[in-house]
Design a protein around this nucleic acid. Structure first.
Lengths: 218, 218
DNA sequence: TATCAACGGGACTAAATGGTCCATGATTTC
DNA sequence: GAAATCATGGACCATTTAGTCCCGTTGATA
């Protein structure tokens, strides 16, 4: 018996360009659909149709719906972090924070406040349902908050923020305001409460600035 | 043809004590289950079993699942508003706000941060799925915020808050911090981020106090 | 106390949905 | 260019789940 066979197939799985593209198409479709309808309200047939694939392909690339959802959590997390890195990586001043705020508000206003945050919505829907998804979301939120707190650290080191400012707590507060703002904006179908929430958090950070740039607007 | 019949049955539906009790039992069970599993992940069979009723009773009291969910939205809204009225109706000072904060934090810590806010979770799950549910939730959030802003108005009228404080915006900011805090706490299974978020909002309100009671703790 | 509608139990149905399977076409590798 | 494996289409299956129906019981009212 040729026992060389045993060692030969070191390649557990070949993967072609086409396969990669199909997988990407599925994730992209799932991302779109589940963003507007929610995860549980989106069926695999919806995804199959929207991605122009078939059942067997879904199950070729993902073990089951739960795995697809978990992959989506990672996919969306990577997208958000990539986007946020762009807006936060070079943050060094309060005005940079304001620009960041404006970008988020404007993006959400294009949806009339609807749908909320891609990560926050999933966190609500999945946290009590899929421990692994929750864990990934938690890590993603932590990474996102770190982008913010790193920026605040730079502001503090650069002399813009007072020494008694706590970048980690400020980042958590800002993230909570953002997520709560998304939630209220979604319920209202109006971006306004998100603006108020972010402005509150920004005012709070402002109170730690070394030289307050003018009076807080009444 | 006795046309008196047409006017006679003014009573479109008789209702007995037992019927009321059954309906209540169904709502109570749905409330419990959907709080921990979410609305879409809870089946009518789950509700039927937990409420010790039968299919025909569910459909006797509610036209379909959507109607049950809508009734639950009102039911839970009434519960939350009743609870919040107790904590906010006599709010007249900043320390009262702190007590209110502590009560919410303690209640959530009993769940180890899990499940989030009964209203907020429904808002995320239903806002893009059931326009009527969203509308009711929006009204409930508005009533809740009004309890807060009324308290802040009393604080302002009583001289505790400066005249340039905007009770409505402060209430919206506080509500967003609360909801965002619930969301992050749920993802973390830890009440800590909720505390940080609420403390940020409270510090912000504190900055509008007429006589700051001591330094902000570093 | 007779009547009739509300109330209740639970089997049943239809549709949706997650998941399987197999034949066939496309690629990679030797 | 042949073997092996990946990729794909789509029919098919099993389960779950919302919703229906029938018939017996309870209880309010005349």
């Amino acid at each position: 018996m040729s026992d060389e066979r045993v060692a030969a197939p070191t390649n557990p799985r070949r993967i072609s360009q086409r396969g990669i593209a199909t997988r990407e198409r599925i994730l992209e479709a799932a991302n779109r659909l589940m963003f507007v309808r929610g995860v549980n309200a989106t069926t695999l047939d919806d995804v199959r149709e929207a991605s122009q694939t078939s059942k067997s392909q879904l199950y070729h690339h993902f073990a089951d719906k739960q795995e697809l959802v978990r992959a989506l959590v990672r996919y969306r997390g990577a997208l958000v972090l990539q986007r946020e890195r762009g807006g936060l990586e070079r943050l060094r001043s309060f005005s940079g924070l304001v620009r960041w705020r404006n970008a988020l508000v404007q993006a959400n206003s294009l949806n009339y406040g609807k749908y909320g945050c891609g990560l926050g919505s999933m966190a609500v829907e999945l946290s009590d349902q899929d421990e692994q998804a929750r864990s990934t979301l938690l890590e993603t939120f932590a990474a996102w908050e770190k982008l913010i707190s790193d920026g605040l650290h730079r502001m503090r080191d650069g002399g813009a923020l007072r020494q008694d400012a706590d970048p980690e707590k400020l980042a958590t507060g800002l993230m909570a305001a953002l997520q709560g703002g998304y939630l209220l904006a979604n319920a209202a179908h109006d971006v306004a409460p998100m603006e108020v929430a972010l402005d509150m958090a920004l005012e709070h950070i402002k109170s730690f600035l070394v030289e307050p740039s003018g009076e807080p607007r009444g």
